[in-house]
Amino acid sequence: MSERTSESLLARNQGSAVPAAPQPANLADILERVLDKGIVIAGDIRVNLLDIELLTIKIRLLVASVERAQEMGIDWWRRDPMLTDGRQDLAEENERLRERLESLESTDG
């Protein structure tokens, strides 16, 4: 330790420190920061956190696996029109239009 530490920290760094967070942080917030942010320095113990993305963690730990998730019907990311930009809706709409056309043609004929 240098002699700097003997001075009162609060006195010299008034206003420069971060006050303790008043509210308990949720796990998702903490994980995304401690796993994905912060300074990266390679220690002596090698661990590649870049391999561990939050999505992987979520899927693996909360629903076991992507395959398992699909078995369980948890595939909202494929079906949700907010995510798929309505492409599925358009496909269904096209299908309906074709059926409608066919039914009109058969009525006329």
Partner: peptide, 15 residues
């Protein structure tokens, strides 16, 4: 960080 300027390290940096 509540006591001094602090740069957090990523989880699991072990020497």
């Amino acid at each position: 960080a509540s006591r001094a300027p602090t740069a957090p390290l990523r989880l699991a940096t072990v020497c």
